[in-house]
Every structure is written in C-alpha cells, then in structure tokens.
C-alpha cells in the first residue's frame, strides 16, 4: 500500500502540489486524472522517487521513501515498473535487451532464465518474435507494448502508467486499455495510471482520483465519480465526452 501524506512540491516559484493526500490500495487500478499542468506527472515521479518532495511523506509498504538515501531508494524503486509517456526505450539496445535490462540488473538470473522471461512477457503483450528488432523499427503502439513488457519483466509490485494512451489512435488506445486490465488480472500488481483520457479512466479503473490545484479533490469508483458535485470535475468529464456525445446524438 502507498500512503501519500501532505506532499508539497514547488517549481520555480509555482506550487504544483499543495499538501496532497492519497491512499493507493494493493491490487487496485487507480487512475489519476486532471488537466494538463496540474502536476500529474510530478506526483507520479514523486511516488517512484524520481523527484524529491519539498515536504510531506510518501510511505511505500511502511517505508517513507522521502527519507531514504540514493542506495536505499534504488532498492525500493525496483518494486516499481513504469511505462513512460514516451515509452523511454533505450535506443542503443534492441527489443530483447530492452526487456532483459531490468532482469540483468535486478534479478540475479542466468541468461537462459532471462531469455525465457523475456519471451514470456513479450508474448503477454502480443509481441513475440520481435526480440531482434531495433527500437527505431517499432511503431508508437509497439514501443508502448515493449515498454510495458520491460516494466513487468521484473515482476514489480507496483506498475505505473504515464499517459499510456496518449498519441495512439483509438483502436490502439483501446488495445492498451485491454492490456492494462489483462496485466493487472494476470500479474497481480497494483496499477497507478496517470491520464487525461476519460475513456481509458472509465474502462480500466477501480478508482478514479481527480487532481486539481495541487490536491486530490475527489476519489471514487468510476460509476460514482460521474455523479460528482465538484464543478471542475464535472467540467473535465463533460468536456472529455461532449463532442462524441454530440455526434452520437
């Protein structure tokens, strides 16, 4: 379980997070939604320890990661798998070496075991047979899938997705949503998704958290959150869906 308590983060004189509180429960898929520039990615990076908060605590399974030194933090970080917005695959390595990277550095596995695990996770993301492709030969959707395979290869406890469907066509975005659900079901992880894609949020989430003005203003299951009284959240949901509904009408 992750407990975020009273977290503040400031960039260049601007408060991005203003005493944010959030609980993330084991095995759930929680989606953090909010407009661009509200600090979703900042929160995301704070949870993994890629950024340091100005104050407050982030407690991962009982350990406050804001108080750890670099070496201790690196150990905690190995509990996290992360799908970056740009997939962040290593250009200098092929698909196989990208997926094997974490296994070689964290695992203590033999190369044979690494090979078997790479095949297994590539199959899970429907990319078996692509081991020898270079990163530059992959499409946007394939990159996200390889990024996902790399993130789950080390069997992390927490899986974080930063805008997993951004920049993908609707069909591909839907397939990524299905993949997130499939992985959550089959790999038994806690998934934290940051997105402004409401379609994705409604489809995959156990709970949705609305980030606005540097705090989580509302947290609820998708069927509850649509009934919200929060004007900003209503506006956010409505503007995400009204064009489509207009056409459908």
């Amino acid at each position: 379980m992750i407990k975020i308590r009273n977290v503040y983060k400031r960039f260049g004189g601007k408060n991005v997070l203003n005493g944010l509180n959030l609980d993330i429960y084991d095995s759930e898929i929680i989606t953090i939604i909010g407009s661009s520039g509200q600090g979703k990615t900042v929160l995301f990076k704070l949870i993994v320890g890629l950024l340091k908060s100005d104050s407050g605590s982030i407690i991962v399974d009982g350990t406050d990661i804001t108080r750890l030194d670099e070496k201790e933090l690196l150990e905690i970080q190995s509990n996290f798998g992360m799908l970056f917005q740009s997939a962040a695959l290593f250009d200098s390595l092929n698909v196989y070496d990208n997926v094997a990277f974490g296994l070689r550095h964290i695992g203590g596995m033999s190369e044979q075991e690494v090979r078997a695990r790479v095949r297994e996770v590539l199959k899970l993301v429907s990319l078996d047979g692509t081991e020898n492709l270079s990163v530059s030969a992959l499409s946007g959707g394939m990159k996200k899938r390889v990024g996902l395979a790399r993130a789950i290869a080390t069997s992390p406890k927490y899986l974080l997705y930063d805008e997993p469907t951004t920049g993908l066509d609707p069909v591909l975005a839907e397939s990524i949503n299905d993949l997130i659900l499939k992985i959550n079901r089959e790999v038994q992880v806690t998934s934290i998704v940051v997105t402004h894609d409401m379609n994705s949020a409604f489809k995959i989430s156990s709970r949705v958290a609305f980030l606005h003005n540097g705090v989580i203003e509302e947290t609820a299951a998708p069927d509850e959150i649509v009934k919200t009284e929060n004007a900003e959240l209503r506006k956010f949901i409505a503007s995400s869906t009204e064009n489509l509904l207009g056409y459908l009408r």
């Binding site: 320890g49 690196l74 970080q77 190995s78 970056f84 740009s86 962040a88 990277f101 974490g102 993130a151």
Partner: peptide
Amino acid sequence: AEIGTMKVTEQIDALYTLGTE
C-alpha cells in the same frame, strides 16, 4: 547529444526504475 536525448526522452528515469544508477 546522446545523453541529453536520453534525459529528455525519460530514458535516464527509466534506468532508476530498472534498478540501475
């Protein structure tokens, strides 16, 4: 340029999450 590109495309952040300094 290579390291700079790795930085702006989040590959450096990815290293941390894969247990590597």
